[in-house]
């Protein structure tokens, strides 16, 4: 028995070592992410190959991970927080979930309007709230700005996502800043009066109904239609998407997905390395391309996105949008946006 025990000890030792060693010795960075694109994983893998730093991932929706991080506080093991909406990023900044990283490379790679001025988070990709138009029902040339959606000529032809969509909340915040409250209120009322059908809970379902002519025009993030066009959703969706046009209002409301180092990050250096990698022109292009988003600068090389043409951002910062998020949501609720 004793001999057995003695023989077992070193074995146990190596077992324990082999179990704990990778966790303590290998470099890693732990990411809470609000993005759910499997194409992201390819970029993380490339990062690991280039740097030897393992990326450990926890994906969820924005609100849920912000709440989790807030409650975990000091005990949180997250090093990087990625969120997919400007207002959510501003909210997380306000809650003190990020720490500032003064980093010349990041300041250079990320334009000022797409990052926190104090360097607490940095944009990764851009997405545009666009019009999806059925040219048989609505002349795409008649739609120039978001204000045109309230035009009584569109009565019974407009389709919208629900108020719950953060992309819509940020769009309304954007209009609140640019046009003021009275104009935004009557704009919302005009749009609600134009609705062809109750508000949608999915951009893709909405785009399909525009293609079928149930709606003449809808408001979606352009990457959903790009994805349909690419055939990722099947041939039927590809054919449907071919019937619609994407029109970018001028100026366009541009939203961002962005990343920052968490306040209590244990792997700060690795976290900064990851964000630098994701915002560097080559990787950022890949990060955006896999999900049909736009990179931080320019319009990317994706042939489908090229078909949509360029757009002119209205240049509002995430902090500005974030400051108006609550007022926007309230205004939508008060004026019948379900």
């Amino acid at each position: 028995m004793i001999a057995n025990k003695r023989a077992a000890l070193p074995l146990l030792g190596t077992l324990v070592l082999s179990l704990t060693a990778p966790a303590t010795l290998a470099q890693e960075v732990r990411v809470y992410s609000g993005r759910h694109y499997s194409s992201d994983n390819a970029i993380y893998e490339r990062f690991t190959k280039a740097t030897g730093i393992k990326v450990r991932l926890l994906e969820s929706n924005d609100s849920a991970i912000v709440e989790r991080l807030r409650n975990e506080g000091r005990n949180s093991s997250a090093d990087v927080l990625i969120l997919v909406d400007a207002a959510k990023l501003a909210h997380a900044t306000e809650l003190g979930l990020f720490q500032p990283i003064g980093n010349a490379e990041l300041m250079r790679d990320v334009p000022l309007s797409l990052r926190d001025p104090k360097g607490r988070w940095f944009g990764l990709t851009r997405r545009v709230r666009a019009f999806v138009v059925n040219p048989k029902l609505v002349n795409p040339g008649s739609l120039r700005t978001y204000a045109d959606l309230a035009n009584p000529a569109l009565k019974g032809k407009l389709c919208l996502r629900n108020r719950n969509s953060v992309y819509n909340q940020s769009l309304v915040a954007d209009q609140l800043i640019l046009r003021g409250q009275p104009a935004t209120r009557s704009w919302i009322r005009g749009m609600i009066a134009n609705l062809a059908d109750p508000v949608y809970t999915s951009d893709t379902v909405l785009a399909r109904d525009v293609a079928r002519g149930k709606c003449g025009v809808g408001v979606v993030n352009s990457y959903y239609v790009a994805r349909m066009l690419s055939g990722q959703n099947g041939a039927a969706d590809k054919a449907l998407a071919a019937r619609v046009r994407i029109v970018y209002p001028n100026p366009a409301h541009v939203n961002v997905s962005g990343a920052g180092v968490t306040r209590h990050a244990t792997n700060r250096t690795q976290a900064i390395q990851l964000i630098e990698y994701l915002t560097s022109p080559t990787a950022a292009e890949g990060f955006a391309q896999g999900s049909f988003e736009y990179p931080l600068k320019g319009f990317g090389n994706n042939p489908i996105l090229k078909r949509f043409g360029p757009f002119t951002p209205d240049g509002l910062s995430a902090a500005q949008l974030g400051a108006k998020a609550k007022a926007a949501s309230q205004l939508m609720a008060d004026n019948g946006w379900q």
Binding site: D197, Y200, T201, S202, T204, V205, R208, D209, R212, A236
Partner: peptide, 12 residues
């Protein structure tokens, strides 16, 4: 919802 939307029906 997804099947309906592919077939042209709104389930809502």
């Amino acid at each position: 919802i997804d099947w309906g939307s592919r077939a042209g029906w709104r389930i809502h």
